[in-house]
Amino acid sequence: MKNLDMSLYLVTDSTYHTEESLLRTVEAACEGGVTLVQLREKHAGGREYLEKARKVREITDRFGIPLIIDDRVDVAMACGAAGVHVGSSDLPVSEVRRILGPDRIVGATAKTVEAARKAYEDGADYLGVGAIYPTTTKVVTIRTEVSTLDAICRAVPIPAVAIGGLNLENMGILDGTPIAGIAVVSAIMKAEDPKKAASDLLGKVRQMRH
C-alpha cells in the first residue's frame, strides 16, 4: 500500500477562476498545507486539460505534493501526474490500474460498502466518500450518511477521505470516524485567503483525528 498523506485533499474547480487565479489559488493552498491536489476539469478538451495539468504539476512538484488527475488517464500519463481519480461513470478501476501499472496512484469514488470493497479489490489506493453535505460545485451529488462513511472506512484497508460541502464550521460531524482526511473544493477554491483556509482546515483535521 502506498504511503499517502490524505489529511487535506484539494479538488480544484475552474468554474469561478481564470487560469491565472486557479494557479495562484493552488499555490497558496500548497503553501497552506494541502497534502494532495486533484485537478478536475470536467469541460476541458484534452489539449487544454494537459496544458493546465503541466502548469499545476510545476506547482505541486515544488511542494512535493502528489498531483492526481480527475478521470483522464491519458492526461495523467502525458503530464507525468502521480495518479488518477475515477468516479462511478468513468473508466473501471481495474482498467485504470492495468493502464497505469502498479506504481501510480489510483483513487476511486465509493458511496457504498460494496463499491468500496470492489474498488479495493480492483486496485484502488484510496477512496473518496461523499457527498457528506450538498455541494456548490457543478458536479451532481448524492448525499452519503456519516454511518455509511464509517462503515466504508472499516470495510477496507485503504484510506478513505470524506468529501462534499465540508468546511471549518461543519466538519465536526465526522468526529470519531476513522477517515484518513477530508477532500474540499469550495472551502479553498472560493476562499479569500486560500493559504489560511488550507492551514486552518489541516489543523482542524489533525485535531479531529487525534
Rank of each mutant, 00 (worst) to 15 (best):
P134W: 05
T112P: 12
D103S: 08
D103P: 05
A187I: 11
L4E: 09
Y16M: 07
A28E: 11
T135C: 13
G101N: 06
A78S: 04
G101R: 04
A155N: 09
K52N: 04
G123W: 08
G83L: 09
H85N: 10
A76S: 04
E95L: 11
L10E: 02
R206C: 09
P92D: 14
Y49Q: 04
D193S: 08
A160N: 00
D103F: 09
T60M: 10
R154G: 11
T141F: 06
V93R: 00
L67P: 02
K190C: 07
T15G: 04
R97Y: 13
I173V: 12
L23G: 08
V161P: 11
A82R: 06
V146G: 10
G123Q: 08
L10D: 02
V140W: 06
M1W: 03
L174E: 03
Y9W: 10
R72F: 07
G123V: 03
P134E: 14
S186I: 02
D61S: 15
P134Y: 13
K111R: 09
Y49M: 09
V205R: 01
E51K: 03
N167R: 09
I105L: 13
L8N: 04
Y49N: 14
D122G: 08
R209M: 14
E41Y: 02
R117A: 09
L201G: 13
E51R: 04
I182M: 07
V106G: 08
A82V: 05
A162Y: 00
G33K: 01
A44N: 08
L174R: 00
P134T: 03
R54W: 12
K2Q: 15
V56N: 04
D200A: 11
A116D: 06
P102T: 10
V34F: 05
L149M: 11
A191V: 02
V185G: 01
D193H: 12
L22Q: 01
S89R: 15
S7M: 07
S88G: 12
T60V: 14
F63R: 02
I188P: 12
T60Y: 01
